[in-house]
């Protein structure tokens, strides 16, 4: 076992969650923006799908605030800031080279705010996040740390897919990957909750809202959200 404090483990876990949240959100945002070309009011459905408050006054307001508003806790930038906040205290664990991709992603997103090609800029943010994940695999020797980042990622993806009411087929991959990571034993988790979630997502009638709630109870409370 590596020498890792509770707080550091929290940061590692939430780093996985927030990077995944930014990644999946941007992918879905691309689809949403595409729909909004023909149907500008689609943003209302988008917010409902993500189960986030529709605090936007119009489609134009959504376009302005959803990606880049630091004051909006649901914005892509806010979520990337939280990923960054968790990463920046882990330089000794992740390595400066790995961390540089988080810096690049954040700088890219901030600079894209007034860009006329913001979706192309957001594509680069995705690229940097993918490079960041690749670096965590390549540069971090500790299997424990890699596993916890991945457990956070898979859980977050599953949680988002449940909110987005994805099909059973979509759910299977992140669920099995989460189980594989948790079984390595590096994180304390609630086995009963995991079983319940497994039965739910593999059933023909997924109870999505129950799935969202249960997914938030799988990881033990000591890994509380510190942002």
């Amino acid at each position: 076992m590596d020498i890792i404090s509770v707080e550091e483990m929290n940061h590692i876990y939430w780093l996985g969650r927030y990077t995944e949240r930014v990644y999946t959100t941007i992918l879905y945002y691309f689809k949403g923006r595409d729909r909004m070309i023909e149907d500008p009011e689609f943003y209302i459905t988008y917010c409902r799908d993500f189960t986030i408050p529709n605090c936007y006054t119009s489609a134009a307001d959504f376009l302005l605030k959803y990606a880049f508003d630091e004051e909006n806790p649901d914005s892509i930038l806010s979520n990337l800031n939280r990923a960054y906040d968790n990463a920046i205290v882990l330089r000794h664990t992740l390595g400066t080279e790995t961390l540089s991709y988080m810096e690049l992603a954040l700088n890219q997103l901030r600079n894209a705010k007034n860009s006329e090609i913001e979706l192309l800029d957001l594509q680069k943010v995705l690229d940097y996040i993918l490079a960041f994940w690749a670096c965590t695999d390549d540069y971090i020797d500790s299997e424990q740390i890699r596993s916890v980042i991945k457990a956070g990622r898979h859980l977050e993806r599953l949680n988002l897919y449940l909110r987005l009411r994805k099909s059973k087929e979509c759910m299977m991959k992140p669920f099995h990957m989460l189980v594989a990571r948790l079984r390595k034993g590096y994180l304390d988790y609630d086995k009963d909750a995991l079983d319940r979630l497994g039965m739910n997502v593999t059933s023909s009638q997924i109870d999505y809202w129950d799935g969202v709630k249960v997914s938030e109870t799988i990881i033990k409370e000591k890994y509380h959200c510190i942002n």
Partner: peptide, 11 residues
């Protein structure tokens, strides 16, 4: 954080 990384120490 950089010196923790470069000395192989715990931060």
């Amino acid at each position: 954080s950089y010196l923790a990384e470069k000395t192989g120490s715990i931060l």
